[in-house]
Design a protein around this nucleic acid. Structure first.
Lengths: 154, 154
DNA sequence: TTAAAACTCTGTAGCAACTCCAAGGTCAAG
DNA sequence: CTTGACCTTGGAGTTGCTACAGAGTTTTAA
């Protein structure tokens, strides 16, 4: 159960992961290099299907590729105990919880700002625009804290 | 009230914004180009202090630079009514609310996964590692939805 | 058989919002 | 006159992809 002989497009359809992304994971060392055909096409087996599924599951849980790499390493050391996986997951949960709290505070601030102007009028009287210009909105200087970013509405 | 004659380091300290970032905002057209000394040093006035404060306030509310640019444009059209600012802020609030909901779901899933293995043991029996390998964690294929990313614990 | 369509290959650039580095110019103090 | 703090520009790195471009390969249909 290793030789399925999938081309990259087949693997892509099977895992709902774009082919470009599969190549990217390979470059990044998350997926082992597949064998090649005479024509230099990549050929995948079931181990690739499974590993890619693992990666995508982790990603859907918003883990970074760094974390995925660590989990893969843990997974591949047989008969080790799974403390490392526990720690990683616990840390990840903590990060998410932190971010939720931050965003909830943010939401409150935004709604407060929004209440400062409910109606249309000339810009110079707009409580929102004025509020944003003021040196202090609630409390000033708190660092963005490095891991804090990301609402990413594109 | 325009000529304070601040050098970039002075402005940086005053606004707690790194000098590099100030130059970046200038390149991106968010801050007007300052005058220069004979030695080619940037010289800032109070209008720069105020505009930079505005930008940083927006950023601390997690707005994108694109949104900030739009708000600045709105602000600089005098006697216009502030509908545009309202719409922008409402949209931003909606994005944040969406992201909060997503992250809360995520947190639940992660905690569920964590519960699958409470104790140390050999990796191959670990419910976490096994759970991540399974083809379906909760429900499979839901798109990352483009603006959904970002917990970014670096 | 052959020509078009569909697929794959590599490599590069772009996104957001910075941050960091290098190599050098400018200015005040000692 | 030299040290050091500051400033200048330009370019690369970060994260996790996505989107080309230009070329080669394989499959399908006429």
């Amino acid at each position: 159960m290793v030789a399925l002989n999938l081309k990259i497009g087949d693997l892509s359809r099977r895992t709902r992961c774009p082919a470009q992304t599969i190549r990217y994971y390979e470059r990044e060392g998350l997926l082992p290099e597949p064998t090649r055909t005479a024509g230099n096409y990549r050929v995948y087996g079931s181990e690739h299907v499974e590993q890619l599924a693992f990666i995508r599951n982790c990603r859907s849980l918003d883990m970074t590729l760094r974390e995925v790499r660590q989990l893969l390493r843990v997974r591949d050391i047989p008969d080790e105990n799974c403390d490392a996986a526990h720690r990683l997951l616990d840390e990840h949960i903590a990060h998410v919880a932190t971010r939720v709290a931050e965003l909830q505070l943010l939401e409150k601030q935004l709604k407060g700002l929004r209440r400062q102007c409910g109606t249309a009028h000339a810009d110079k009287e707009c409580g929102i625009l004025n509020g944003l210009g003021r040196r202090t909105l609630a409390d000033a200087d708190k660092k963005p804290a490095a891991h804090v970013r990301g609402t990413h509405h594109g």
